[in-house]
Nucleic acid binder design. Sequence first.
DNA 1: CGCGAACTACGAAGACCTTCGTTGACACCT
DNA 2: AGGTGTCAACGAAGGTCTTCGTAGTTCGCG
Lengths: 128, 128
Amino acid sequence: MSRTKLPRPTDAELAILRVLWDRGASTVREVHETLQDGSGYTTVLKTMQIMTEKELVMRDEAQRAHVYSARVPRENTQRQLVTDLVDRVFGGSPARLALQALSTKKTSPEELAELRQLLDTLEKESES
Amino acid sequence: MSRTKLPRPTDAELAILRVLWDRGASTVREVHETLQDGSGYTTVLKTMQIMTEKELVMRDEAQRAHVYSARVPRENTQRQLVTDLVDRVFGGSPARLALQALSTKKTSPEELAELRQLLDTLEKESES
DNA sequence: CGCGAACTACGAAGACCTTCGTTGACACCT
DNA sequence: AGGTGTCAACGAAGGTCTTCGTAGTTCGCG
């Protein structure tokens, strides 16, 4: 049992994970350049080292410039953060979060259609 | 311009806010008792004092046991946290968050109906 | 070889969060 | 008046996160 009940990634960690999810395996330099915030190179490096310890990312040390890749899938992290938020501020109701999310900004017709489809599926399920 | 760009409430703060939103104005003791986590009385007190400084809550000192009430509305905080999450992990697409939220857990038929209604409204809007 | 550029590693500082012990004030009861 | 319980205030400790300076390593090049 070495499963240590992973904590939420921090903001800085999440920003880095997003880069790795989007770009795929990358060096510190690449991440640092992509991430156009004001943070310094060594800051990004340090954070990525910590993320390696936390097993959020993998490191390939074959080259001099180590190559990092995300070890946690994007979907999982999204799910983790969503259920966390649902529990902490929406009383455990994902639907209320969904309502809040949708009424906030505008959504494209394609996404609306996708949502409608999901809704159909869910309603059929609840009927059976 | 005294608007200081409010930061996300921390976990402990959020837990307390939830109690205040649910119960309405409450004393520290009441909050502490409601909140059945393992935290000590003075911990809750301290946090609520800090929240007063941050203007997250209001304090009525008329009685010996001060009475606190939420100063930020629940809706605002929910919106804040949702848009924050949308920006940080769903690339700015609320619909993707909604999809993730809904596919995670089961949702009651009433909520599904509510969602469908909102979807109708949104689709009509995008048509015009 | 010797220099500079690109890297990693390390450590420490500063900010914030959470936790709680202790102190002092106040109130009620006997 | 003295004792007991309730309360706010304070301060300090310990943890985590973020930041970055500095030092050491490696590589390529003149």
